[in-house]
Design a protein around this nucleic acid. Sequence first.
DNA 1: TCTGGGGTCCTAGGACCC
DNA 2: TCTGGGGTCCTAGGACCC
Length: 345
Amino acid sequence: MAYWVLHVDLDQFLAAVEVLRRPELAGRPVVVGGKGDPTQRAVVATASYEARAFGVRSGMPLRTAAKRCPDAVFLPADNAHYEEVSEEVMATLRDRPGVVVEVMGWDEAFVGAETGDPEALAAAIRSDVLERTRLRCCVGIGDNMLRAKLATGFAKPGAGEGVYRLTAANWAEVMHHRDTRALWGIGAKTARKLAERGITTVGELAAADPAALAAELGPALGPWYVQLGRGIGRVVVEGTPWVPRSRSHETTFQENLTEWEDVRIEVAALARRVAAEIAGAGRPAVRVAVKVRFAPFSTSTRSATLDAPTTDAERFAAAALDVLERFPSRRAVRLLGVRAEFAPV
DNA sequence: TCTGGGGTCCTAGGACCC
DNA sequence: TCTGGGGTCCTAGGACCC
């Protein structure tokens, strides 16, 4: 018996959930996002594998998706429903005896367990989830969370057989030749910075000097990147419920707001909505942040610590409006956002 | 191809205090 | 008259992830 980390990731989650509700869509390219109207300002949340075959990807504007795949079925995102289905999946995972489940989002979770046969556990989880929710998932197996998460990528349809194991034993063989971008936590910007320093592969990153990277990329981030390259990560899956640090809402307007009075009205409305939710959760805000994306696409934020923690809608809205007035520009506005931050626990 | 919404964590500079 | 360090808080922005 040894401690293993499994990473469970549902296949094309939003699209799969929609196909369950409308079985006639099975086998068709399905694109979920925004209000389901490809002429609006919105992006793809999930594309089915059939739509991906046309080059449709998450994060792509719906308009672009429609050009690449004119025959796709466009559906609005129904977050409340996905939330419900996700709960059912997570409950299924938790029902397996002896496991600890750490939820990472609607469609993925880590499972920690003592077992002598992690592949058997992975297979059992896949059949549990399929039986109870009719959804398919892949499972990555690792000796820590980083390796389990990356293993899932090698288990996915088109890449693997549904289950894959990545540990210290095969890390170098599987990962060292890959681009640093393959790591969980290294995006395009960091990969470029590393490349400028002669580090392009995972193996090169693993061999880098943590102190040198600390000096160049930050005292915490630099050494952490080297750890990523070596496949080092948190080992123990935590089952304790997550305590959110903040709560926010933001809106992209279909037509830019050109009147500052309208901007004020929308910020107040967003603030009241956030306040109602944090009041419902019993979590007073200690800070408020306002985000403004001016046309065409330049974004800035301003924030302030509140005089006293509050859940009161009018006080929170007033604070948000005060922060809004600190923006020096009155140009046309594409997006507004309001965030409440909670006191550290 | 004109680029969503909801989050988390890190960094760096300045203020302020001792 | 000129100049220490350390510590903490606040704030804006960057980067990443789902």
